[in-house]
Design a protein around this nucleic acid. Structure first.
Lengths: 144, 144
DNA sequence: TATTGTTATACTCTATAACTATA
DNA sequence: TATAGTTATAGAGTATAACAATA
């Protein structure tokens, strides 16, 4: 209905992101995970022993919100912690989590592949560099 | 820190969108508006007499959420309604709203221009078509 | 002093359900 | 029977403040 909106990059960014988040949320719901939880699991898999604070800095999640998120993954049996020192806890996948993560990665890979497939070939290679530049530019101004 | 994440289109889409939303939110806060309210104002300006339901369908906002949103814009004095029939109300900008909208458009135009400027020139022309394709593809599966 | 983890809390966005009135 | 508008409510996501324990 509204061509003015449908060609604005900002609005399109919002809508495309929301649409893809809905796709990812639906896929991960079959595994009992939310998108952020799945991303955290993958990060722990890639960086065994990482702390809550470090995850939060990497994924831009506040410490206060990491606590219940990690607790939920722990309750589900996918992660466990071992004390690094008196105040930090290194997080690791449990044995069950190590098996589970491959299903998580499969869902996310399918999701990412779908995004790529939706883009007409001439534009395909340009999306990632364009989005990286937008994100990087915002970081530069917004947070230093 | 995490290169695996930083080259995934899905994750980048999320982060780029969140970063740009933060930029837009900050700009519009100076006018006392939230992003959705500004978009609704522009839509009413482009389509005088449009109803709440029609706005909701265009912008993918639920009827239940349109009611307080329209009430807030009305309380601020930017819009007013005239009955179309017994159940529908056409929305229009007030005189004050008609003056105000140019400031809203200026903020949004600056925001959109900033996004474009952040993208390196070789990739610039590809973002809008790529995002359109992603959004359209999602619509086809998710709701069509 | 700064950092880690935690709890409590609040605000926004988005969603469903249920209702009234009207077409 | 379907649509427009409204209210109440609930779930996520994200934010700050304050605290204890530790570096």
């Amino acid at each position: 209905m509204d061509d003015a909106l449908r060609s604005r990059p900002g609005y399109l960014l919002r809508r495309a992101s929301a649409a893809m988040m809905a796709d990812l949320t639906a896929r991960l719901a079959t595994l009992g995970l939310r998108p952020t939880e799945a991303t955290v699991l993958m990060l722990i898999d890639d960086h065994p022993g990482i702390t809550q604070s470090s995850i939060g800095r990497t994924l831009q999640i506040k410490r206060a919100n990491m606590a219940p998120l990690a607790a939920r993954l722990s309750d589900q049996g996918w992660i466990a912690g071992r004390a690094v020192d008196g105040r930090s806890t290194g997080l690791y996948l449990t044995d069950a989590g190590g098996v589970f993560i491959s299903r998580v990665r499969a869902e996310i890979d399918a999701h990412e592949a779908r995004i790529i497939a939706l883009i007409p070939e001439p534009h395909r290679a340009h999306l990632v560099p364009a989005l990286k530049a937008i994100w990087a530019g915002a970081e530069r101004v917004g947070e230093g």
